[in-house]
Design a protein around this nucleic acid. Structure first.
Length: 563
DNA sequence: CCTAAGTGTTAGGCGACATG
DNA sequence: CATGTCGCCTAACACTTAGG
């Protein structure tokens, strides 16, 4: 039921923004999609996608409403819902948002709950603040919004936000939450308070702990028929007293006297964008008694509460913390091979922005890790940031029903001694070997693309074919400056000592290297791995090339003598 | 103005090595 | 011999500098 409330509001929010033409900015900020607009789908594909998405969302809704189980985080759910709306916008379909028949919002809110608009960017926050005075900042507590109704000082109702006009009667639950005063001392006949019920978590640090799905847990507790012992852990943060007070200090003091001390504790004046940003940052990093997903900037709302509306209002603005995860679709799956034959898995994804970074590619460590989930193009995944920078697959949301064929390299195809000679399927490892070799030999300006150009231009076969090229040939393939540079670097490389060369060739093991190849061959007879590698270097003609080039330690060696 | 190369920072996977 | 630790390899991204 809570879920329905969420999407209802989301729906209103998104439609409102769409009509304002701000959709791209908003989705980008929310981390839904960096490139807005419609995906290059065929209509048929789009229809399939929409159908699949609807099915998926319906499944989650059902699980949630009938069993109270959240299969995915609220953040993911919201993003998927937004995704559906985008697709529908693109292809002119509409899904009416219908509440399941079991959900009935029976209780009328005395004053409607007006939603808070989310700022699309830091810039919008600045704009919003520019022409406003007496702005205050509060944490955007991650919980469930309710109205508390006091009549002659007695708590008579607690109502869930529902659609903003009507909600569920949670009065019975309020009786079991010690943090909610059952009575307040006041002369006023009616007092209506709007606030957030949340699960108290002392020492919660948002930047470190994240949302922890505390919102879902809270909603679950309130919807459960039985009165769980855990209700005692709930608390309330009041963020509005409609029509109550015009003087800030009086408003805060009164709430504190009544038994709602958090509002006074966490309401700060804001003098401008800097001070707002500072406070937002502070609340993001410091221990708080609740989870929060951002801050809310607000002015004193109008006293005439009859004009309050659901959806936006002009007196408050939410400034959310950067999202830590985003839903995205896998475009390509690649299996880069490193110089040692090690295979990693790289996913190219629809670009998403997380914490200011545009995520386009996500590495999956190793083949073994990939094998567990076998992510294919078309799959939907949740991407997050590990620490401060590295994208990581957090979760697979939906596998596509029509996965394309993937060429998955076998672990046995690439290894320490493979690809010392160029073949098309060896391209990656072969080039990785050259990049490493250039680097070890101190050759600057020899990146993977230059090596690739040379390999293509002169159809390389052996690892050292490049040593046979003269200055003119290098210039022809790389351009004047780079060609000359490459030639100089290559000549310098020829003078490097034997041990540097062995290293550059990728000889495994750490023990010290002898002075020349024949000594090396004798010593490495005992070390299987080195011996194996040395044999491969001879078999692939690498040693012969070096001998020909007169490189230190290889001269005078006759590789044939070892056969 | 775009592309290539390089640097700095961050992190996971995994094999090699050390230690009990 | 089992277990823990360390270093190497590979990766993403932001940024700078130089080439074409």
């Amino acid at each position: 039921m809570f879920r329905m409330k969420l999407l209802f509001i989301k729906r209103i929010f998104i439609t409102g923004i769409l009509s304002g033409g701000l959709f791209c900015a908003v989705t980008a900020f929310a981390g839904v999609k960096a490139q807005s607009g419609c995906l290059p789908h065929t209509v048929v594909q789009a229809e399939t996608d929409v159908a699949e998405l609807r099915k998926q969302l319906a499944h989650w809704d059902k699980r949630y409403h009938t069993q109270g189980v959240s299969e995915v985080s609220d953040e993911t759910y919201d993003q998927m819902r937004a995704r559906l709306v985008t697709l529908e916008q693109c292809y002119g379909q509409q899904t009416p948002v219908r509440l399941p028949s079991s959900v009935r919002y029976t209780m009328k809110h005395p004053v409607v709950h007006s939603g808070v608009r989310k700022a699309a960017s830091d810039n919008e926050v600045e704009q919003w603040l520019r022409h406003r005075k007496n702005v205050r900042i509060q944490p955007k507590v991650d919980g469930v919004a309710v109205s508390l109704v006091y009549s002659h000082g007695k708590l008579t109702h607690m109502i869930s936000r529902g659609d903003g006009h009507h909600g569920l009667d949670w009065t019975e639950k309020a009786r079991h939450i010690p943090a909610i005063p059952q009575g307040i001392t006041t002369e006023l006949t009616d007092v209506i308070l709007q606030g957030e019920i949340f699960l108290r978590r002392d020492g919660h640090v948002q930047s470190r702990d994240g949302g922890k799905n505390l919102r879902s847990v809270t909603a679950g507790l309130l919807m459960r028929q039985a009165n769980d012992e855990q209700l005692r852990e709930l608390d309330v943060f009041i963020w509005a007293w409609p029509g109550g007070a015009t003087d800030m200090q009086y408003y805060l003091n009164t709430l504190t006297e009544w038994g709602f001390p958090l509002t006074a504790q966490y309401t700060k004046p804001v003098s401008g964008p800097e001070s707002a940003a500072e406070q937002r940052e502070a609340w993001y990093r410091q221990p708080m008694p609740f989870a929060g997903d951002g801050v809310v900037l607000k002015q004193m709302p109008p006293q005439d509460t009859s004009r309050w509306q659901t959806g936006h209002n002009h007196w408050s603005l939410a400034w959310k913390y950067p999202v830590q995860t985003a839903v995205t679709e896998v475009r390509h799956v690649q299996f880069p091979v490193g110089r040692t034959g090690r295979i990693t898995v790289l996913l190219s994804v629809e670009p998403v922005i997380i914490d200011g970074k545009t995520i386009k590619r996500v590495a999956m460590g190793s083949l073994a890790v990939w094998m567990k989930q076998r992510i294919h193009p078309g799959d939907l995944i949740v991407v997050g940031l590990q620490g401060h920078g590295i994208p990581k697959v957090r979760e697979v949301i939906r596998k596509t029903e029509t996965p394309p064929e993937l060429y998955v390299p076998g672990k046995e195809d690439f290894h320490r001694t493979s690809c010392l000679t160029y073949t098309p399927r060896c391209r990656q490892q072969y080039l990785a070997r050259l990049v490493w070799l250039g680097k070890q030999l101190g050759m600057n300006g020899t990146g993977v693309r230059s090596w690739g150009k040379l390999a293509d231009h002169y159809t390389f076969s052996g690892l050292l074919d490049w040593m046979l090229l003269d200055e003119e040939q290098l210039k022809a393939a790389l351009g004047k400056v780079r060609g000359v540079n490459f030639y100089r670097q290559g000549n310098a490389a020829r003078q490097k000592p034997f041990s540097v060369w062995l290293n550059a060739l990728g000889v495994p093991g750490k023990s010290p290297l002898p002075a020349d190849w024949s000594l090396f061959r004798q010593e490495s007879r005992l070390k299987t791995e080195r011996n194996h590698y040395a044999q491969a270097l001879e078999a692939e003609g690498v040693v012969a090339s070096l001998q020909l080039q007169g490189v230190d330690g290889f001269t005078g060696t006759n590789p044939d003598s070892h056969n």
